[in-house]
Design a protein around this nucleic acid. Structure first.
Lengths: 152, 152
DNA sequence: TACAACTTTGTAACGATTGCAAAAGTAGAA
DNA sequence: TTCTACTTTTGCAATCGTTACAAAGTTGTA
């Protein structure tokens, strides 16, 4: 089977999103086909996907893609600050391509993970003696949709 | 081997902490020997232990204790609101017997999990349309101790 | 082309957590 | 006390997200 790296059809398709390539460059990440695909997926799907979901979504178009590559890539993207690693769900890690300031709400009933708009994350609360790299605000409970269903 | 439930020596020892028994009652949890032991450990060790750490700590005094029981008990304690389930560390769940308002800081270098005092968690930021059961504020980075070491 | 460095891949292993059914313990009635 | 129903604990096996590792592939440079 022809490799993705040498497939002109695929290259052309990927070139349709030069923004993603540039985005990776901004974070000092060499834009391989696989890295572009993962980053591109995260930029265009704000569903806080798991590694497995990303793999399942990309695999049909990238038959040679490996789960390990998805895991490795996500680790790299998070380490360079291009992607946020969400740990609110104890069952598995989720990833967010939106690195702007916002919190998250996990519905314990249906498992949906919602964005929560935040104006500011109070600086005063930061632990001054430590060097902070990231901050996350997590809410858990029952979402509006599930609350409605269980009301009657 | 004599069971814990029928061991008078152990009962006497546990009776030395009637506060823990009362604490469980407050949360509607029937105070079995195992539940008292787990809750008692969390009330007296503010180290955010994992299930395994709790098991290892209790096992010497409770040779018949099962890991499954520790997991089951923690699940129950969290469900009733007596204990907080911390998901900041992607590797494993940690538990906190201190349910007062405070955040957490995980040092990515040494793995230590610190408490972060909070004055208030801004109400305005809550997602109004959802029913919120718990809120967690997580910080990650390098702690003061590790920052100092890597400075020179 | 040749070489070194980097990246991807597939498989095996790891390890935290859960499922499950048997055993043990508890509480209330008779 | 004894019976009975219910609750809890236990130990083992299984699950499954994630990681380790080495081989194969790719890229950049000379």
């Amino acid at each position: 089977m022809q490799s993705l790296q040498s497939c002109n059809h695929y290259k052309k398709k990927m070139n349709a999103t030069p923004d993603t390539r540039a985005y990776l460059n901004e974070y000092g990440i060499r834009p391989s086909v696989q890295r572009i695909a993962v980053m591109n997926y995260l930029l265009h799907h704000r569903t806080h996907p798991t590694a497995e979901e990303i793999y399942q979504a990309l695999a049909p178009e990238m038959p040679t893609l490996s789960r390990t590559t998805v895991y490795n890539t996500l680790e790299l993207l998070v380490a360079r600050g291009a992607v946020i690693h969400l740990t609110i769900d104890p069952r598995f890690s989720r990833y967010d391509g939106d690195i702007s300031l916002h919190g998250h709400f996990l519905c314990d009933h249906c498992g949906t993970l919602y964005d929560v708009p935040l104006k500011t994350l109070p600086e005063a609360l930061y632990p001054k003696e430590h060097r902070v790299n990231s901050a996350q605000l997590y809410y858990r409970g029952t979402c509006a949709h599930c609350s409605q269903e269980n009301k009657q």
